[in-house]
């Protein structure tokens, strides 16, 4: 590997890790929103508490 390859690899690692983390965070947010909607539907279907 030449010096330039190491340089490109280092910056690629930086941005890949950043990309992976933001993707994971976005997926988590979407999952929470989905579960929240399911819960609301469940509450609406169940009616008022006994």
């Amino acid at each position: 590997m030449t010096n330039l390859n190491f340089l490109v690899a280092a910056y690629s690692v930086f941005f890949l890790l950043l990309f992976a983390y933001t993707m994971w965070m976005g997926a988590r947010q979407k999952d929470i929103e989905r579960r929240m909607k399911d819960l609301e539907r469940h509450i609406d279907a169940a009616g008022p508490p006994r």
């Binding site: 590997m1 010096n3 910056y11 690692v13 930086f14 983390y21």
Partner: peptide, 20 residues
């Protein structure tokens, strides 16, 4: 969590600098 992310970036970039 974010600290671990940056520490991982720091260590990995350091390794790629150390090798050459």
């Amino acid at each position: 969590e974010i600290g671990v992310l940056f520490a991982s970036m720091n260590i990995t970039m350091g390794m790629l600098w150390a090798k050459p």
